[in-house]
C-alpha cells in the first residue's frame, strides 16, 4: 500500500513569547515539524507493513526541508518539498489547490492521504477538507483510530457528541485527531537512514498550475488589517497583604453577583 502524509513546518509555539507592547516575538524562534503532522505521520508509520511505502510532502520555503528530514528519520520512505517563490502568502484555498495538484501528479495511486487535524500556527484546520473537496474524494475527520480492512480501512471518528466507526475506501483523505505532547525519540540507526534519503523539490511548473492559481495571487481571502491591542483592558493592579485579604475582595465581587 502507498500512503501519502501532508506535513507542515511551524514556529515552535513553546518558544514564542510576548513583549511589553503585547506583540509577538518571532525573531529567533526555531521552526519545528508541526506536532499535529508528526502525530499523523506516526500513526501511519505504525500501520506500515512490509512492502508499504510512506511518502511525505510539505509546502514551504527551502528551510522546510528540515521538517521533511525529521519525517524521514521517523520512518518515511520518500519526501517531496513543494517550494516555489510564487507559493508564498497562500490562504487555505490556494494551499489546498497546490496540494491537490501535487497529489494528482505525484501521488495519484496513494491508498490513503493523511493530514493532522490542523497546524499549530494557523489553526484553521481547513486544508485537509478543501483538498479532499478539490480532489472529489471522501473525507474522514477527527480520526482517533484507523486500521486496514478488506478493500480499504476502517476508521473511528470522534465528533465530540458521537463516536462512529466507518469504512474508508481507498484514496480517501483522513485527518487524525490528536497530538503527541511528548514528541518522539529516535535511534541513531533511524537518523542515519533518514539522512540517506534525498528530498525531491517540486515547483509550480512541475505540478502544472498557473501563477494565478497559487500563493497570494491565487488566494480567495485577504488580510486587510491586524490589531494587537483590541483585547487589552484598563487594568488596576493591587498588591495584596495576604491571600486572605484577596479572598475577601473576591467574596465581595461574588456577593455582588448573587
Amino acid at each position: 500500500m502507498r500512503f501519502a502524509v501532508a506535513v507542515k513546518q511551524v514556529p515552535d509555539a513553546s518558544e514564542v513569547s510576548v513583549d511589553a507592547n503585547g506583540s509577538l516575538v518571532r525573531l529567533g524562534v526555531p521552526a519545528i515539524l508541526d506536532p499535529f503532522s508528526e502525530y499523523a505521520l506516526r500513526r501511519i508509520i505504525a500501520m506500515k507493513e512490509e512492502g508499504d511505502e510512506v511518502s511525505v510532502f510539505a509546502m514551504g520555503p527551502p528551510q522546510a526541508s528540515e521538517a521533511l528530514r525529521r519525517c524521514l528519520c521517523l520512518g518515511a520512505d520518500k519526501a517531496f518539498l513543494l517550494s516555489d517563490p510564487s507559493f508564498a502568502g497562500a490562504d487555505t484555498w490556494a494551499t489546498a489547490r497546490t496540494l491537490a495538484a501535487f497529489i494528482g501528479r505525484y501521488m495519484s495511486d496513494a491508498d490513503l492521504i493523511a493530514f493532522g487535524r490542523q497546524a499549530a500556527d494557523g489553526e484553521t484546520g481547513q486544508v485537509p477538507y478543501e483538498t479532499a473537496g478539490l480532489m472529489s474524494v471522501r473525507q474522514f475527520a477527527y480520526v482517533t483510530d484507523l486500521h486496514k480492512a478488506a478493500d480499504g480501512f476502517v476508521a473511528t471518528q470522534d465528533y465530540g457528541d458521537v463516536a462512529r466507526s466507518v469504512k474508508v475506501p481507498k484514496g480517501s483523505v483522513v485527518s487524525f485527531y490528536g497530538t503527541d505532547p511528548c514528541g518522539t525519540l529516535m535511534s541513531l540507526t533511524d537518523r542515519i537512514r533518514g539522512y540517506g534519503i534525498p528530498i525531491e523539490t517540486v515547483d509550480r511548473v512541475a505540478i502544472g498550475l498557473g501563477a494565478y492559481s497559487v500563493g497570494l495571487k491565487g488566494s480567495k481571502t485577504r488580510i486587510v488589517r491586524t490589531d494587537s491591542k483590541s483585547m487589552l483592558r484598563k487594568n488596576r493592579k493591587v498588591a495584596m497583604s495576604s491571600p486572605g485579604r484577596a479572598a475577601e475582595v473576591l467574596l465581595e465581587e461574588l456577593e455582588a453577583r448573587r
Binding site: V18, G22, S23, S219, T221, R222, V224, T226, D227, S228
Partner: peptide, 9 residues
C-alpha cells in the same frame, strides 16, 4: 495575539 481582519475576494 493578533486580531486579523479578513475579507474574501
Amino acid at each position: 495575539n493578533l486580531m486579523a481582519d479578513i475579507e474574501c475576494v
